[in-house]
Nucleic acid binder design. Structure first.
Lengths: 112, 112
DNA sequence: TGACATACTTCGGTGACCGATGCAACGGTA
DNA sequence: TACCGTTGCATCGGTCACCGAAGTATGTCA
């Protein structure tokens, strides 16, 4: 049980980046930083660890490998499962944010 | 740096519960389960560990202790700092959810 | 009397995340 | 030719929030 999150912000932004199509590691880092307005600064250790884990969970898969200017680029693609997980997490966060904002908007009436 | 979250869902729902006023441990667990629609099932180890940590960070503080029917109840209160952190986290989550939902709503046009 | 609920404490384990370091190949400069 | 900076991936050790389990204690109900 426990459920909780299972998809924290770094992993979340990795999947979110892949919504824009297959992408390789460094591009994901830049995309995540931009999408989160600089708050999520993916460490390389986090990125590759997360990609391996997400691949093992079937949420992403390797799309292809390219060699650009002698450097290998490994492109990752979002799977249907990954897309579902991402949407579920987005819903969860929206709900969680709503809980707080709604409570804040409620004039102080006191419980019951 | 890295920022990321620092406030995960369990801790988030603990602070959110305290928006309704000072509350003791077990009441927080029930409140969190309800507010999260059953998804966040605070383990006791998580709760008390988190309360200690949050207290050390100045986000919550002990309000008072009561003895009800022979059992000690320790009530915790949300501090201004805790309230700020909670709002910041709610904003962060709303933004993160928006990133995904907005992208999903966008007809496939391709980047640039 | 025993089973169950409330309420807090403590402990060991797990796993995501992190920074640091390392490797490799190119471009530019002199 | 030598060197440096950048791009890009791989790996390792550490930290910390979270978790479940076990323990203590008191009250209610059958």
């Amino acid at each position: 049980m426990s459920a909780s999150s299972s998809l924290r912000e770094p992993s979340y932004y990795i999947l979110a980046a892949l919504l824009d199509g297959p992408m390789h590691g460094y591009a994901i880092i830049k995309h995540a930083a931009q999408a989160s307005q600089g708050r999520v600064n993916l460490a390389v250790g986090t990125l590759y660890g997360a990609l391996d884990r997400l691949a093992g969970e079937g949420r992403v898969s390797v799309d292809r490998e390219e060699i650009v200017e002698g450097r290998t680029r490994r492109y990752y693609r979002l799977t249907d499962l990954g897309r579902q997980a991402l949407i579920a997490e987005a819903s969860r966060m929206q709900h969680a944010a709503g809980v707080v904002f709604r409570r804040l908007a409620t004039p102080i009436v006191g419980p019951a």
